[in-house]
Nucleic acid binder design. Structure first.
Lengths: 227, 227
DNA sequence: CGATTGTTTGATCTTACTCAAGTCTCGTGG
DNA sequence: CCACGAGACTTGAGTAAGATCAAACAATCG
């Protein structure tokens, strides 16, 4: 399906926002929209001709499997996020839909060419990659020393931020896009430890659980203070 | 001191290698070389006007301190590496010399301008940032699940790779640029655990220690196979 | 409705942390 | 040159946090 930039909900937040109309139309011609259902695979590790994409709606996970077959989630992608490794000979990670999602997909060659023709686009992608690096290092810092409950608290905090539309406040009530197992894979914990941590956060009056996925923050400030 | 690109040992590996002579000379005019002794600070977290730099020789660490004052090392920088956050309002990390080092330092504004004028440079930095992101995620993967000994083994492996000049083979004999404490901070372990892991790797015949810093790999293949 | 998958909770075990003591290394000054 | 002291490193014993194993419970889907 062809792109419909005019009605795109992330048109002024995604990387393509830096392009002028002409350049964006050129790029749009080489792109296609794609819809994924929860669990659908966008790219798989090892693919040689992996494309790149911008997420319009939904959520994705970027993950690998270690030698014992355990999934390890390295990052999440939220709407307006860029996905793809422009310079890798083949895809390093699996990219999978966490919820039903919509994307614009572009062949890598076209994106690389657009990069040459639009220095602004190159700069925008550099900025995004820099931010992604910061996020990755944040997670790394977290994995390094925090206690289990601190990691879970921090993940919830990040989810609350991502769930809010406005960049200043975090959502106070939202649904987790991840299963307990996925949270565990992301934080380097087990399912049981994640579950116990959530139970404890609830017992301590920091949040309330609504069903299995729903979270309501009671005391957001405390979230940041958990060891 | 002014730059001497002609005699630069990393002139064909660093990001500036993609520039033609004219463009490189332009950039060189705004840069200065800087020498650091072990322990010297290049940038500190929070600096508003942090510059950016290319490492010519030596080694750096990129680190933060958590709320309890523990250092957490997020990445190492080896010769030809690029250092700096072009789009952050202030520096996110401390950057400190691990050994005596030499760098070319550029004001951020000049680098951003060079980016606009040389799409190739933007592309080169994008590629580097992408690679740095991959390295960060690799470390993240490691921190997630591996046993202590697996993490230490993997760090040693990375050091061996970095210590070799040729990109194909890893060095078989080299000196660790990190103290036990720094290794611990990087891997999310304690000094004692790192020390015990090294002892065990030696006892199992995988490596030999020469003094405190020297490492000689006996069975490099085994390094990759540790839990 | 049953089956499957995901979640919670409990009991036990393992790994790495903590605390403590001793050793090695290296630089400084007598 | 040696003695000393400060750091860095190693090793041991006990402890704690989270993993593992196990069982019950909830949600979802055909």
């Amino acid at each position: 399906m062809n792109l419909a930039c005019e009605t795109c909900p992330v048109r002024d937040r995604a990387a393509c926002a830096v392009l002028n109309d002409g350049a964006r139309d050129d790029l749009a011609r080489s792109g296609r929209t794609r819809k994924l259902r929860r669990g659908d695979i966008l790219f798989s590790r090892g693919e040689e001709d992996a494309a790149c994409a911008m997420l319009v709606s939904g959520a994705l996970k970027i993950a690998t499997f270690d030698t014992e077959g355990n999934e390890h989630i390295l990052a999440l992608v939220h709407p307006s996020g860029f996905i793809g490794e422009l310079f890798a000979p083949f895809a390093t990670y699996d990219v999978v839909a966490l919820t039903d999602s919509e994307l614009c997909v572009f062949p890598r060659s076209e994106m690389l060419q657009a990069l040459d023709e639009n220095p602004k686009l190159a700069k925008a992608l550099l900025r995004r990659t820099e931010e992604e690096l910061r996020r990755s290092r944040k997670l790394l810092e977290l994995s390094g020393r925090s206690s289990a409950i601190g990691r879970v608290a921090s993940l919830i905090r990040g989810m609350a931020d991502a769930a809010s539309k406005t960049s200043c406040h975090m959502a106070q009530k939202f649904d987790l896009p991840l299963t307990r197992g996925e949270m565990a894979n992301m934080l380097g914990l087990t399912i049981e430890t994640v579950s116990r941590s959530l139970t404890r956060l609830e017992r301590e009056g920091i949040l309330r659980r609504n069903g299995v996925r729903g979270i309501e923050l009671i005391d957001p400030a405390q979230l940041g203070l958990m060891g």
